[in-house]
Design a protein around this nucleic acid. Structure first.
Lengths: 342, 342
DNA sequence: CTGAAAGCGCTAACAT
DNA sequence: ATGTTAGCGCTTTCAG
């Protein structure tokens, strides 16, 4: 285990003081070109990298940006993480990721750990922490929230127009002639889940249609939640020709239930999701969904965090959703003669 | 932005020296019960958390464990990451994740960054770095490699018995009566891809069967690679009734190609994967695959890393694979009369 | 423009 | 058992 080379080594080797090396490293002050060249040569030769721990301690910045994600193995949040990492790539900052696992205590704990690690900023992906707590945190450290609205912090929120997106879905389904709908919603505590559901039901209502209570089930944005919710839907025995899910992961789970029940997609029931996770285009059949450029949103979140750090004002980012029509939706099956008579 | 409370504050407040507080924090030495209680009370009241940066600098340990993963948004590696995070949860250590994106330079860079950050150990998930480089790294910092064999470092490798797993698949397919096979392999540079392919082809050979060159295509362990490889397979026009893929993600991609081509799974072609990623059980139809408990492997990797840190010897971990039969495989379709005559 | 010196918050000998 | 004293590697006044 070799001894790591320190700034002091470099200074000695180059025949200058540590401060000079530091200044060159940070561009803090002007240095004679010849010294700069000399020092830079030594840095390169020794392959010196400043110790971030020491920099953090002395400089008061940790050079790391905390990220709280609900899950590490979610196709959706994984993409966001990839975007954040990519955006931070050319900067001296590094993401420090902790998962909250959809549990308030875990999220709180994650926040504590990140603050203890003195992260310079925090990016919160989704999550269920109270607005009050977040407002408090935002006072200690620059905060960016993705995919959720935080009261009093709307400038720092990067959100998608959920209502507009879900309206697109509802209209698409209506235009295909569907009249009997089922809906799988996200958890009530999440604002985006509420927005999506409200927009879906609202659009149908505007068209003079309602969805019976039994055909609205709550999943929790996970594949398994979707699978179970779809089962409850079928258990009601109520008819429907279109099933809209509040996100792609639940649509994937629901699709399994439909398969097991011998229902064909889209011949028997049209299925839709929301988010356009990468795997959705690979489903059988490929899923009709709403594109939310989550990777890009991740990069924007990281950049906004950097801006906040630099003391620049952030301005609210609202992403526009886009309907992606694939094979999982088709015209409503014409009712069988018997049903038509009924 | 409140001032963080420091160990010095706690010491003053409790009327003891900083060292005493430190000792209590680390359990380094015995402290009078009464003092301990007093100090602990103050710690709780002030909600004090030691600054990890300072601990790192003074103690020579960063309390973080570097993790290099090929990808942040992979269902497979995501699970491993979740396992690692979970195993580290009750320890003072924290994972620092960087993605290598299947590019040697990126992996090298990731390694450099982690070493610069003075991580206490490194866990390498898959990856394509040369064995020589890893041997060198292992001399500087405890290293655990997951899913790959590193020459001269076999003790630190956590691997699955790839050959045994793929043999299970081949035998399963043979027992279903299949005689015409196609195979989608991982990249040549990865040892596990090689092992799996060799085992598959070897088992068929032992049964007196060979696979024509055109029906062996190389993907790169990604969904898209599988999709493309499957297309090349179909383009050859050669017949096959079973398609084995070297991992689940490629099987998912291949499944899309089959769907587009109007081929039914498993009626027209049986499809298999490897890994048993969570989403595989949700495919339409659910995928027959080899279970590799990747989450568990992640936790073991983290624990082994901790062991290495503690100076305890690690012993080579070999996981045993298990066949999971689902709906994507079925008896070989009886050849049509025309084919039977040919 | 540059060096000397004083910490950042903590740990780890070294004393006592 | 506990306090005192040095640093860890770097940044940042403060002089010059």
């Amino acid at each position: 285990m070799l001894e790591p080379v320190t700034l002091a080594h470099v200074a000695r080797e180059a025949g200058v003081s540590p401060s000079t090396v530091s200044r060159i490293l940070n561009g803090t002050a002007n240095v004679t070109p010849e010294k700069r060249v000399r020092v830079e040569a030594v840095i390169a030769r020794l392959n010196f990298r400043p110790n971030p721990q020491a920099q953090a301690l002395a400089g008061g910045r940790s050079l790391s940006i905390g990220v709280i994600t609900p899950s590490l193995h979610s196709t959706f949040y994984g993409e966001a993480l990839a975007g954040i990492e990519a955006a931070l790539d050319d900067t001296p900052y590094h993401p420090l990721v902790i998962s909250g696992q959809w549990r308030t205590e875990r999220e709180q704990e994650a926040l504590d750990v990140l603050l203890a690690r003195r992260v310079d900023a925090v990016i919160l992906l989704g999550g269920i922490l109270d607005d009050e707590i977040l407002q408090h945190v935002a006072r200690r450290v620059p905060l960016i929230a993705v995919g959720r609205e935080v009261r009093g912090l709307s400038e720092c929120c990067i959100v998608l127009d959920n209502a507009a997106g879900m309206r697109l879905v509802a209209k698409h389904l209506l235009s295909l002639g569907h009249r009997q709908f089922a809906y799988i919603s996200g958890a009530e505590r999440q604002s985006d889940a509420l927005e999506r559901r409200h927009a879906f039901l609202g659009t149908l209502q505007a068209a003079g249609l309602t969805v019976p209570d039994g055909l609205i089930q709550v999943g929790n944005y996970t594949e398994d939640g979707g699978r179970l919710a779809a089962q409850r839907l079928l258990d009601t025995g109520l008819p429907f020709t279109a099933l809209a899910c509040a996100n792609d992961q639940m649509a994937l789970g629901a699709r399994l239930t439909l398969y097991r029940a011998g229902l064909r997609v889209p011949e028997d029931v049209s299925l839709t999701g929301f988010d356009d996770v990468v795997t959705s285009s690979l489903m059988t059949p490929p899923l009709t969904t709403v594109r939310q450029a989550i990777y890009d949103i991740g990069t924007v979140a990281a950049r906004e965090a950097l801006n906040l750090l630099a003391g620049q004002p952030v301005n609210r980012q609202l992403f526009t959703p886009e309907l992606v029509v694939r094979d999982s939706t088709a015209p409503s099956p014409s009712p069988s003669p018997a049903e038509a008579q009924a």
